[in-house]
Nucleic acid binder design. Structure first.
Lengths: 167, 167
DNA sequence: TATTGTTATACTCTATAACTATA
DNA sequence: TATAGTTATAGAGTATAACAATA
């Protein structure tokens, strides 16, 4: 490998293995969701949030962590609504807000797809882990995730130079 | 095989934390690469492979693991070539093959971007890890990755029903 | 015939900015 | 003024299938 200045082989190995495993898992998950439910991963996550919430969420609440732009959520919510999986209605409390709720069909589809989703996760990620591995992984990833969440959103990537032109 | 229906809280927690951490890291990495080098993550990976190989690679060799379709690689290689970061030439050994090589400019850009990339990975992923954590993470993720690589490419997502129509 | 790669095309998704409406 | 959401639009990326050329 190209020994990047500053990462020792152990750090590099952990980083690459982590990244590749996440990428392989995500790809298989997306394959499954598309084939079995016609859903993208984002759409699945949105349905999961709504199913989990047990009631309507505003667009802003729904967006949190799943999508990085308002318009992106409007687009996805539009697709889900057109497919009859969610409804959108103005909130009585705050006339500016839109309340998104999952429909019967949405719940049915989500439930149907969920079992296959779990199967993918189990067979790819969980099967090769011992009980001890699972404890370690859970502890480490929870700590890392919380650390990432707490970082200043932008400055994690230090601004050394002006933005380059894209290819 | 297909175990009991759901995942227990520990499995669920590890899965969610893993997924979210990977997603947060990837997002920041992409932000940085785009801002600092005008590169997408895929493009950065392609340059990394070429820099690491120390010589030209065929399109097929270059694609492995980075891209999931031939045409996708042709598209990306075209962009990199147009930007002067790689060259493409027919292989002398096999006239069907295209040899892709990184240019001086490509190496320079890669080197310039790499340090910031490492900084992002360190600050987000490595900083909160102890020496012991790193050992555990490396061991676990390596095992998981190898397990994923060894799985039959398609049947990981069991074919329970006909492919659904996309939204 | 199988393999390597490109092209044509259509589609999905995302992001920015301008806009509307309410607080 | 600030916030919630939508729309318009443009761009990046991907995948499929048809294709050409070589093994």
């Amino acid at each position: 490998m190209t020994g990047p200045e500053g990462l020792d082989p152990q750090q590099l190995g952990a980083y690459f293995a982590f990244t590749e495993a996440a990428s392989l898992l995500q790809h298989q998950v997306e394959q499954h969701l598309r084939a079995d439910g016609g859903l993208s991963y984002v759409q699945f996550q949105l349905l999961a949030r709504l199913a989990d919430a047990g009631g309507p969420l505003t667009m802003t609440q729904l967006a949190d962590g799943v999508v990085y732009s308002r318009s992106g959520l409007t687009y996805q919510a539009g697709l889900l609504e057109k497919a009859g999986l969610v409804t959108r209605a103005p909130s009585p409390d705050d006339e500016r807000a839109t309340l998104v709720a999952i429909t019967e069909d949405g719940l049915a589809l989500f439930g149907r797809v969920l079992s296959g989703h779990v199967e993918v996760v189990r067979s790819m990620l969980l099967d090769p882990l011992s009980e001890e591995d699972l404890q370690h992984l859970g502890g480490i990833m929870t700590r890392v995730r919380d650390h990432m969440r707490a970082l200043p959103p932008r400055s994690a990537a230090p601004r050394k130079r002006r933005a380059a032109r894209s290819l």
